[in-house]
Computed example of a mutant assay.
Amino acid sequence: MLIRSFARILAVMAISAGGFATQTAFAENIPLYESQETPGRWVAEGWKTDFSRATIPYWDVTDVIGRDNIPSIDEPKFEDVSNNIIIPGNEPVIGLELNGDARAYPLRIMMWHEIVNDNVGGVPVAVTFCPLCNTSIVFDRTIDGEAVTFGTSGKLRNSDLIMYDRPTQSWWQQFDGNALAGVHAGRKLKSYPSRLMSLDLFKQEYPDGKMLLPDPRRISQLGRNPYAGYDRTSQPFLFRGEMPEDINGMVRVILIQGSKPFAVALPRLSEDGSFSKDGLTFSWSAGQASALDTSRISDGRDVGNISVVDKNGNHVVHEITFAFAARAFIPDLEIIQ
């Protein structure tokens, strides 16, 4: 196998509606694996991905289910959050606000779809959630000036969702937005600040906000957690790596990625209420149920609401994930406990 390192290439620059600079850039110093043999099962599945380009060895991928068996929502519909009379206020939602457009994506819906291709405040975004890692991240879905849609590949890496873009069928890691295989291998999606928060807190902060309506394809499952007891287990589902030795692998951590990534363990933050590092302030408040505890989401134990802001009070990109996933993707990650 030939491994060729390539230097950083400047991002393809464009300006999206709403004034945000875009979009995908090439990540730094990622080795490119070439001349790998494409697994025959992927050929049989009819992928059009250019598997001659990859940033990972293919043995690192776990096949689980078929492509799009977990269906993305591509034509999302919303209602005023003030109209909600069904979802309990302690249930978690992914809260997103762009250009004055605030939207809530309940995890009771995201659990069964994992990706919502949306336009928020004039910005094409992919709102994503991987239940096995508890990661919710919002990506700009503009690539080379074109708004693309993403779907679920049915594959995992480190128990994290592998997405694919529909035009080129390149594979992308949900955990960090890095392209793993295909013509876009080595690129990285731009992400926007979003928050895992209770529905009550979203309504309090954004009383005029909108909330995602259920998709008819999975409406019978709403409110149910198919991974009952998952965030109390000793071994994450379909994870083949080593568990961390200095922290319970299923402890939630608040991860800040970048040139010097670090994470704060949830027990530390919930005990202190706030924490500051590198110009960022982490805050915790009670009121959000775990979506991965009991079989009915609203009965889950209180894991609280978290915000991360900079010195100007602006929310910053972060993710709330399990320690095992954070260390699997960033082995030398500092976790403050």
Rank of each mutant, 00 (worst) to 15 (best):
W112Q: 04
H113Y: 13
V116N: 04
V116M: 06
N119M: 04
V120H: 08
G121Y: 03
G122S: 13
V123D: 01
A126R: 03
C130N: 10
C130P: 00
P131T: 12
L132H: 08
N134A: 15
N134D: 04
T135E: 04
F139P: 01
F139S: 03
D140Y: 02
V148P: 05
G151F: 06
T152A: 05
T152F: 01
L156I: 05
R157A: 12
N158T: 04
S159P: 10
S159D: 07
D160P: 02
I162T: 09
M163T: 07
Y164H: 06
D165Y: 07
D165H: 06
R166F: 06
R166Q: 12
S170L: 03
W172C: 06
G177N: 11
A179Y: 02
L180Y: 01
G182E: 06
H184T: 09
A185N: 03
G186D: 09
R187H: 10
K188V: 03
L189V: 15
S191I: 01
S191N: 10
Y192F: 15
S194W: 03
S194C: 12
S198T: 15
S198N: 14
L199R: 00
Q204N: 10
E205W: 00
P207K: 07
G209K: 01
K210H: 05
K210L: 12
M211A: 11
L212Y: 08
P214G: 10
P214C: 00
D215F: 02
D215N: 15
P216E: 15
P216G: 09
I219F: 09
L222I: 14
G223T: 01
R224M: 10
R224H: 14
P226K: 10
Y227K: 03
A228V: 14
A228S: 10
A228I: 02
G229S: 13
G229A: 03
Y230S: 08
R232I: 01
S234M: 13
L238V: 07
G241R: 02
